[in-house]
Amino acid sequence: MDRHQGGETIAITIKTLPKEELFTSGHTACGGCGSPIVVRAAMKILGENTVTYFPACCLLVFGGTYPHNAFKVPYLHVLFENSAVCAAGIKHALNKQGKEDVNVVAFAGDGGTGDIGFQALSGAAERNEDILYICYDNEAYMNTGIQRSGSTPFGAWTTTTPAGTKIGGKELFKKDLPKIMMAHNVPYVATASVGHPADMIRKIEKAKNMKGFRYLQIFAPCPTGWRMDTSKTVEVAKKAVNSGMWTLFEMEDGVVTLNVKPKMEPVDDYLKMQGRFRHLTDEQIKIIQGWAYKKNEMDLKFVEAFSEDKKE
């Protein structure tokens, strides 16, 4: 597939996205799952010349149950905690064989990225290994039956943060992983969402065409764990961005750009769509609203501080 004409890259859009499915139908994800949307699109963009790596996560289970497999490209799994180093090892091995043009991509959930897999991820980022790391963020350990992770937001019900009369869901806030990854000074870090496909496609394509460590965190709602209707996956992802619960920005060579300016709609709409927030009191909603405002303010200052103009 030739997308380079006269030295300029022609960007992929929904209309020009390849029709071939490298992540086939028949996988066993729950109906309405957000992560296959990410993976289908990513595999179309990355193309056949790709090796994929997975830690333990939903995608590992629904993407392939021995001896069946939904991926038409090589698909590897070692352990939960070492995705980034294993992917880096695959890349080094391919380089030794002279296959330097192969894309190596690690797909992982938020638990396998930010909690259990973090030391390997941080190490690989610090060494600037030449891999693409895509985290699909569904805000809990969904594969094992909805346990809270570092990425679970405040107030959310999970099986390990139950909502009762004394405690109303998780009492701690969501870990800001994208910014932690930005602090590693890697070539490319971006956030995306299944609710903003054009932005997501552009970022995956950009990451594909770069060298060095590239990190993408893509917001992928989980209807099962979020206790919502399966048809609302994309709608809820859009609402997350509009209400400031999730920010779309990217850092390329030290320059941070805000891609979608949050409309800062009240968080109520976003929360009311999901059963995991059903128990919230007005006070808790206020705390979440306050968190969204504060996050937005910090993000804007951050984008300002690392804008193109400030770059020496």
Partner: peptide
């Protein structure tokens, strides 16, 4: 080569892309 090629077996397709046989 099972890890890199799909293969037909008496019980259907196995290997990469073989989930197409799984009608969900």
């Amino acid at each position: 080569g099972l890890a890199t090629r799909p293969m037909e077996t008496p019980e259907g397709l196995v290997g990469p892309g073989s989930f197409v046989d799984n009608k969900t």
